[in-house]
Design a protein around this nucleic acid. Structure first.
Lengths: 198, 198
DNA sequence: CACCGCATGTAACGTGTTACATGATTCA
DNA sequence: TGAATCATGTAACACGTTACATGCGGTG
């Protein structure tokens, strides 16, 4: 439910047509989240269906200009006023993955953690590099883009910290309660992929 | 794509039937992400359609036992071996919201940030409280649950840090480049909801 | 008997996503 | 003329989600 609201927010500022919406959306989120133009139109059709936007024919025929309705204004105001709740959906795929890995004997959790951590750290660096590029820019939209990049950096850092905490927790758990049977985690040289694969 | 893989991972450990899958999934993720039983069956149907699981009739008729296939094993092994990439989807709704708010004159970004921060901090406390409950438990699945709760706590903390960083960034931006026209952000006592609403 | 837990499903809908088709304009 | 950009859309599908229907068995 984020594209829908994002486009509606842009329309709350000013009527625009679909193509323009895509440009402005991408300008604010950077190359981070490219937006397929087709999706803009499907989303706009749904917004129109729900009475949140309406088309106002432009001077040029075959050029539609979408404008927000009062119902749309109410919804977007509500969106800004209501905090985003992470409690429910969307579920965090990585958290689920580790939760499963931790309770599946066939999977080497440590390996999963290490693979994820190195990848996340690499991603963090990429974001940081992009940030310097965004900050040296002069356009006003770069402010929004820099904020988005910040969020990715902070999230990546938290993820690494969490992975470290998971390792500690696993070590403590292993010390307190030796694993089923062997008391030692599988360390036979095969990768996690091979071990689960049969 | 996380429920699908989560259920498949459970089946990689041992064949189970649908009802049991739900229990084990919820035991590992706690009350955090309740799983509608209906969804288990729709997901299982899709997994079967894709040849990743197969039904093996139990002794009791009308009791189906789902077992993973070799194709399913390959897919789940791949899942564990491939790090989760946050670059693409799912898009972060909060990041989009702030990016929009920052470039929409009618919205008071500071207000959005403050509302989000207090809510996130409250959520963080709730998770911490739950964690002590999970850690005092004795079942093996509580390890997984504790890890999930950890992830929520770390994410919440990162979110607060990010919100602070956004405030700083906005302050710096305002100092360097005074806003359009007035040079002052709207501070007329109306809430963000009222201001956008017309 | 009524209620609860076990157990299996289906129908319908929502958003996100991509692939594809189409046409106008601008510019080298 | 040909390519790129502007501009609009449709069809099809994926997954997630909920509401609803159904039946069995145990227990107070």
């Amino acid at each position: 439910m984020s594209i829908r609201q994002g486009l509606l927010a842009l329309l709350a500022d000013e009527p625009r047509h679909g193509y323009q919406l895509r440009q402005e959306f991408e300008a604010r989120t950077g190359a981070t989240w490219p937006l397929n133009i087709g999706q803009v139109y499907t989303t706009l059709a749904r917004l129109e269906r729900d009475g949140l936007v309406e088309v106002t024919e432009d001077g040029d025929e075959s050029h539609k200009v979408y404008a927000i309705t009062s119902a749309g204004r109410a919804e977007i105001a509500d969106w800004f006023a209501t905090p985003v709740r992470r409690e429910g959906r969307p579920r965090d795929e990585l958290a689920i993955k580790l939760a499963m890995a931790a309770s599946l004997p066939a999977v080497d959790v440590a390996e999963v953690i290490q693979g994820q951590r190195s990848d996340t750290m690499r991603a963090r660096q990429d974001y940081t590099r992009l940030k310097t590029r965004a900050e040296t820019g002069a356009a006003g939209d770069d402010l929004a883009w820099a904020m988005v990049l910040d969020s990715l950096v902070f999230a990546a850092e938290a993820e690494v910290r969490w992975l470290d905490a998971c390792e500690e927790r696993l070590a403590r758990h292993r010390a307190g309660a030796p694993a089923t049977g062997s008391g030692r985690v599988a360390r036979d040289g095969r990768s996690a992929r091979e071990r689960v694969a049969r």
